[in-house]
Amino acid sequence: MQTLGQFIVERRKELGLAGREVVAEVRNSDGKPISIPFLVDLEHDRRKPSDEVLEQLAKVLKVDSDVLYFLAGRFPADLSATTVNSAEELAAGWKAFRREVKRRKKP
Rank of each mutant, 00 (worst) to 15 (best):
P49I: 05
D78W: 09
P76M: 11
T82G: 13
D78M: 04
R47D: 05
G5F: 00
F70S: 09
A87D: 14
G16A: 02
A91F: 10
H44N: 06
L68V: 09
L54P: 09
K95P: 03
K13I: 14
S65Q: 15
S29L: 08
L4M: 01
M1H: 05
R20V: 01
Q6H: 02
R11M: 11
L79C: 12
H44A: 02
E55N: 13
P76N: 13
L54G: 08
V26H: 06
F38L: 03
G5L: 01
K105A: 15
P76W: 11
Y69P: 07
W94M: 11
K106Y: 04
R104E: 14
R27C: 10
A92Q: 14
G16E: 02
D41E: 09
F70G: 03
R46M: 07
I8L: 06
L15M: 10
R47N: 07
G5M: 00
V26L: 12
V53C: 08
Y69W: 10
W94S: 07
K95S: 07
R47Y: 03
S65C: 09
L57C: 09
H44F: 06
E25P: 06
R103N: 11
K59T: 14
L68M: 06
P76A: 14
D41G: 07
E25N: 12
R20I: 00
S65G: 10
S50H: 04
G5W: 03
L79K: 14
P33R: 07
K95M: 04
Y69T: 04
L61V: 08
L61M: 07
A18K: 15
R20E: 02
T83W: 01
L79S: 14
K59Y: 13
W94Q: 04
D66T: 12
I34Q: 06
P49A: 06
A24S: 14
E25A: 15
V40Y: 01
K32R: 13
L15G: 06
N85E: 13
A96G: 12
A24R: 15
F75I: 09
E100V: 07
D41W: 07
L17P: 00
K59P: 11
P37R: 11
A92S: 11
K62Q: 13
E55C: 09
A18F: 11
A24H: 13
P107R: 15
V84M: 11
E43N: 04
E21C: 09
T3Y: 10
E52P: 01
R20M: 01
D30E: 11
S65A: 14
R99F: 03
F97A: 09
L57F: 12
L61G: 09
A72G: 03
D78K: 11
